[in-house]
């Protein structure tokens, strides 16, 4: 279709994954946004024919590998988030920037809540409220990317 677009999709996923693999620790680890899911949401909005739920699932498997947890946990969480992203993708062109931010926040939270539920089933301790900080930082990152001129398909608030 668009070989250049496919290339940039793969490259951005790779960069996001390396960003996840960076040796985060302490407060950085608590605040680290989910780069991979952010990139996936972006491409699901921009190029739904290239990036779909299957891509999200594959990326989730990579996250499982990186986190060292049971295979399939991140995969399922990403699949659920990507499902909502795909369902409301066509409606998104009507959103302005702030509505889009809220939508992205909800998607990130969906993935985190699904992961939390899965972890509870496997007998983990309940996490504190800091567990949800990556969603907030992820939205902030999205906002910064918008300010730097990334086009996410939303109408600017003035239009």
């Amino acid at each position: 279709m668009h070989p250049s677009k496919l290339q940039s999709l793969c490259l951005s996923l790779l960069i996001a994954y390396i960003a996840i693999l960076l040796p985060w620790s302490g407060i950085g680890l608590t605040l680290r946004p989910d780069f991979l899911l952010l990139v996936i949401i972006f491409w699901m909005i921009r190029a739904p024919n290239l990036c779909n739920i299957g891509t999200a699932w594959g990326a989730g498997l990579l996250m499982d590998l990186a986190s060292g947890g049971v295979f399939g946990q991140y995969a399922l969480a990403y699949t659920i988030a990507a499902f909502f992203a795909a369902t409301y993708q066509r409606r998104l062109v009507l959103f302005n920037h702030y509505q889009q931010l809220l939508y992205v926040l909800l998607l990130l939270l969906t993935s985190q809540v699904s992961l939390l539920v899965l972890k509870m089933f496997t007998g983990s301790q309940p996490a504190g409220w800091q567990y949800f900080l990556p969603s907030i930082s992820g939205v902030l990152l999205w906002r910064i990317a918008l300010m730097m001129g990334l086009k996410t398909g939303a109408r600017s608030s003035g239009a």
Binding site: F71, G72, L76, L118
Partner: peptide
């Protein structure tokens, strides 16, 4: 658009759950 997103959700969720069960 290929299979509907709901079909994809069902398929990949089932795959994930199978993986979770196998791995744990």
């Amino acid at each position: 658009r290929g299979p509907s997103s709901f079909a994809r959700l069902a398929f990949f969720s089932a795959l994930s759950i199978a993986l979770i069960a196998t791995d744990s």
